[in-house]
Amino acid sequence: MTIDFLFIWIAFKELLKAAPLTLILTFIPIIFGFLIGVSVAMIRAYNLKLLSPIANAYVSFFRGTPAIMHIMLIYFGIPLLLDILIKYLHLPIQSNSIPIVLFVITALSLTAGSYLSEIIRSGISSVSQGQIEAAYAIGMNTFQVLERIILPQALAQSIPNFTNLIIGFLHTTSIAFLVSQKEITGAANIIASKNLKFLEAFIAAGFLYWIITAIIEWVSYAVEKKAKSYTNSAI
């Protein structure tokens, strides 16, 4: 068995067409997850009654189980719930007409939310108490303190963690191929089985992921430099 280098290039060009779906599956869940993460982090930071235990259980469970479980649970669980709902309300739709990609996005959003809430929480706790006291002292209300003082600093502090999470999620999207999504890994699998060149197809996929990772790292480095420009620190 020899490696067909030309085929790696052909496969790479094919895989580029699958890259948009991978990026959609990476960034849309992170955007939704960010909203979930901020809300959950706030609930836990202010220790709201009733909501706080739910938020704790959510974060603990989603961080404690593999992402593939979340995809599978949503993929098999949501249609079941929807079917009951549809039957109950006599709606003229069917749960199996929903595209699978929506289930993947829902599942990954929930996963992202749990990881992001921890990142945001650690960012918030890195803002010193004195800053918050100073903000209250000049007459800001709780919302202003949050929006103008805590969050900007907490988020700037969290950029390296965000980068790791985005890269982690880019890699997590590869398991979407198990529910037959044609993202990079799924496409590589199809190309590989069509041409019986598994190694070459996965080498091409590996390179593509590697390049995307490098771009994300490079962008995040630039963003971090800008976000932390006010601190005058060496970083």
Partner: peptide, 14 residues
């Protein structure tokens, strides 16, 4: 860099 830049699934197949 390669290990951190590729999904574990791809590494497994490779």
């Amino acid at each position: 860099s390669f290990i951190r830049g590729t999904p574990i699934l791809i590494q497994l197949f490779l």
